[in-house]
Write a protein that binds this DNA or RNA. Sequence first.
DNA 1: TGACATCCCATGAAAATCCATGCTATCCCA
DNA 2: TGGGATAGCATGGATTTTCATGGGATGTCA
Lengths: 151, 151
Amino acid sequence: MGLFLSTTTNKIDKKGRISVPSAFRTVLSKDDFAGVILFQSYTLPAIEGVSMSTMDMMNNRVDQNFAFFSNDHDELATVLFGGAVPLVFDGDGRITLPQHFIDHAQLGDQASFVGMGHKFQIWNPELFKDRQKQSLESVKSQGVTLSRKDT
Amino acid sequence: MGLFLSTTTNKIDKKGRISVPSAFRTVLSKDDFAGVILFQSYTLPAIEGVSMSTMDMMNNRVDQNFAFFSNDHDELATVLFGGAVPLVFDGDGRITLPQHFIDHAQLGDQASFVGMGHKFQIWNPELFKDRQKQSLESVKSQGVTLSRKDT
DNA sequence: TGACATCCCATGAAAATCCATGCTATCCCA
DNA sequence: TGGGATAGCATGGATTTTCATGGGATGTCA
C-alpha cells in the first residue's frame, strides 16, 4: 500500500495553504480520492492524516467491534467521523488547514509532517522536537521492540 | 530474502552521493521499491539500512501489537517511521545522504557499508575499526553463541 | 460587494536524470 | 598462458525535471 515515512517541515503561507510532501501525496494517490482525511488527535496537540481507504478500513473495524445502534458505536463514530475533514489538493498539491486544526496543533507559519506508517501526523515543529525526544526515551526505556519474524 | 554480507568502503562526493555496493543493491532489488530505507541507530554513531519489505514487515507488526491510536503505537511509529528516510537509487546505483545522517554518523568523504544479515549499517571507516575490535572482544569474552534453531 | 475559496502561472532551489571516464575483474581465443 | 576485448562498477560532472512557495486572477456565496 505504501507507507508514510520520514519527517518534512513545510511553510504555511498567508492564505493558510501548505504543501503536502510529495512522497505523502504519492501514497495518498493510491486511491481515487485526490486528497487526504484529517482529524485532530484525541491526546496530542497534533493533527492526524490518513488516506480515504484507511478511513474505510477504520469504518469497517468500528462496525465489526460494535453493534450498529449501540451507544459505544455511536460515540466512537461521532468522534472518528464527525471530526474528520476531507481536504482536496489544489493543482500544486497544497491543502488549506481549517482554523480549528491550526488552533489545536498550535501551528505558526510552519508545520511538520511526520510519517507513521499507515497514517501521519502534523505538528508544530517546536512541539514535535520534544515529542520526538520523549518518544525515543520511552521506546528505549520500556524496551518496546519488535522481533524480526517473517510471516 | 538474501543477506547483506561483508564490508565495503565507498566515497562520498561533493553532492553527498555515494554508491551502494552492488551486492547490497541486488539484495534490495528483491522488492519493487528501487531503493533503500535509512534511519539513524538509536545507540550507535551509525546509519541503519533495510529494504522496503522489511519496513513493511515492521509496520504490520506495529499494527498487530498496538491499537491504532494508542500512545504506545504512536511513540513507536514516531521513532520508527518518522525517522526513516526512503532513498531511491539514481541510474548508477547511488543515493544522496541527508545531512543529518552525515552528522549523526560523523561521515567525512568516505563511508563503510557493513552487512549485518537482514540489515546493514553505514559507518565512518575510522569509527568502524574501533567498533569492530570492540565487538569482537565483547563477543569473545562473553562467550556469545547462537543456538541452532530455525523460526 | 466584500470575504473567501479556487484556479492558474512564475520562480528559485533542490532533486532526479543523463552522460562520460577510468578502474578492475572476467572471459575468450590465439 | 598471455594478452586483448568486454562487462560491471565506482566516480565525476552537467543537464533536466520536480517541488515548494509566492502571488495574481477568477469564481462563488452570503
